[in-house]
């Protein structure tokens, strides 16, 4: 699998240390280049866990489906809020679906 960066969007989010995408990648696959912006070492090593995608505060990272698996373009973007993530599924520049996922206890759904 793999990811793509929108380089111009990156704000070098962690002024006191490593940017969050690089800091948390479980495969040590993201390094910071001479401009302190993230680079992917090797997309074929990406597990597609979306840790970096979710850690990015400005939605500058996207998961990309490898062409061998899918040729169609779609984007899945998480917007992190305090106790939840809003996932937006985008296709042909249009939001097709939205999901709200609880991540902390305070806002637990009452079924």
């Amino acid at each position: 699998m793999g990811i793509q960066f929108e380089r111009e969007k990156c704000i070098q989010c962690n002024p006191t240390g490593e940017s969050f995408c690089s800091k948390y990648c479980p495969g040590d696959l993201i390094y910071l280049d001479s401009e302190e912006k993230p680079q992917m070492r090797d997309n074929s090593k990406c597990w597609d866990c979306m840790v970096c995608v979710k850690a990015c505060p400005v939605e500058a990272i996207y998961t990309v489906l490898p062409y061998s698996i899918s040729s169609s373009k779609a984007k899945l973007i998480p917007f992190k809020q305090e106790n939840k993530i809003i996932w937006k599924l985008e296709k042909e520049n249009e939001i097709k679906e939205e999901f709200e996922i609880i991540t902390a206890k305070d806002e637990q759904k009452s079924d």
């Binding site: 979306m50 169609s72 779609a74 899945l76 296709k91």
Partner: peptide
């Protein structure tokens, strides 16, 4: 919807795949 949300907690890329593959 419930099924997709269950995967977003664990395998989010599957939702992307289902959409991409129609």
């Amino acid at each position: 919807k419930e099924l997709k949300e269950a995967y977003l907690d664990m395998y989010p890329d599957l939702i992307l795949y289902w959409s991409a593959e129609n």
